[in-house]
């Protein structure tokens, strides 16, 4: 496994894990019980998808030649290096530092109010849906299999979140106000979806990965349809916030990891 592929798998896994962790914060706090259960079920799907990518990344790493392992060194959890055993999925999720995460910034933003979480989920799920659609045809059979499995789950996420965007946008004055507010805060982070990083460009050229720039038009078309139903306008402001794919994160990321990783860092290798 090449370093680019290893990085790409971490990127795909990190997106799913970090958003899964954020959504899980709704456990016990959803506006109504049924929707509390819905968004945490989405968490479960996302964390399951992340596991498949981490498992594949760990397996690929363990089979790398020595010089390839050295090339991937910057992405490896420091604490794991002292364990003296093969790399495992949990090491990648629970022991990497903030700058080693490759997730999109939009996934790590605090959950905000219901409108914010819904709109973020919708933006992300539509992107992820088209990304998996492309990855089903990946020349890498493991990636293709994970994408084929995951897209079925993501189809439900798209449908559920789109319906909620419309419900809030076309609902009461307050719900409309709230989702407009969420839109003004979230829009600037949507550009990062389509901005290809060097590892994505390299893998897209070999047919292993998906070219994110090629997803932009489909994403825009899908969002426009839902927005017109919801009575929302696509903002004209540029969407310039990025950095996650390079490991440069928002101030919120460290807190998220501190909470998520606490147990494995305090009680190394704990199982429960």
């Amino acid at each position: 496994m090449q370093k680019h592929l290893f990085t790409y798998l971490l990127h795909l896994a990190d997106n799913a894990l970090v958003l899964g962790q954020r959504n899980a914060e709704w456990t016990g706090h959803g506006p109504v019980l049924e929707q509390d259960i819905a968004i945490t079920n989405i968490s479960l799907d996302l964390i399951g998808q992340a596991r498949h990518f981490y498992q594949y990344a760990a397996k690929g790493f363990n089979q790398m030649a020595a010089e390839e392992k050295t090339a991937a060194d910057q992405l490896l959890p420091r604490i794991w290096k002292s364990y003296g055993r093969e790399l495992e999925e949990d090491d990648l999720a629970m022991l990497r530092d903030e700058h080693q995460y490759r997730n999109l910034l939009i996934t790590e933003l605090p959950k905000g109010d219901w409108a914010f979480s819904i709109l973020r989920q919708y933006f992300f799920s539509v992107f992820q849906f088209y990304q998996y659609e492309a990855l089903q045809c990946s020349t890498d059979p493991d990636i293709a299999a994970i994408a084929e499995k995951s897209i079925k789950e993501t189809a439900y996420h798209v449908r559920w979140s789109a319906e909620w965007v419309i419900r809030l946008g076309d609902g009461t004055n307050e719900s409309h106000q709230r989702i407009r507010q969420a839109l003004s805060e979230l829009w600037m982070f949507t550009g990062e979806f389509f901005e290809a990083s060097p590892f994505e460009t390299s893998l897209a050229s070999t047919g292993t990965g998906a070219d994110p720039a090629a997803i932009k038009q489909k994403w825009m078309d899908a969002v426009s349809v839902v927005f017109s139903e919801a009575g929302l306008d696509i903002p004209v402001a540029p969407a310039l916030q990025s950095g996650g794919k390079k490991g440069i994160h928002t101030e919120y990321m460290g807190y998220l990891l501190a909470e998520m990783q606490f147990l494995q860092r305090t009680y190394p290798n704990a199982q429960w």
Binding site: E34, Q35, I37, A38, N41, I42, E153, W160
Partner: peptide, 13 residues
């Protein structure tokens, strides 16, 4: 339909 997601990931309510 009450909710697209039920007591487990595979069920709706």
């Amino acid at each position: 339909l009450i909710s697209q997601f039920g007591s487990t990931a595979c069920k709706a309510m």
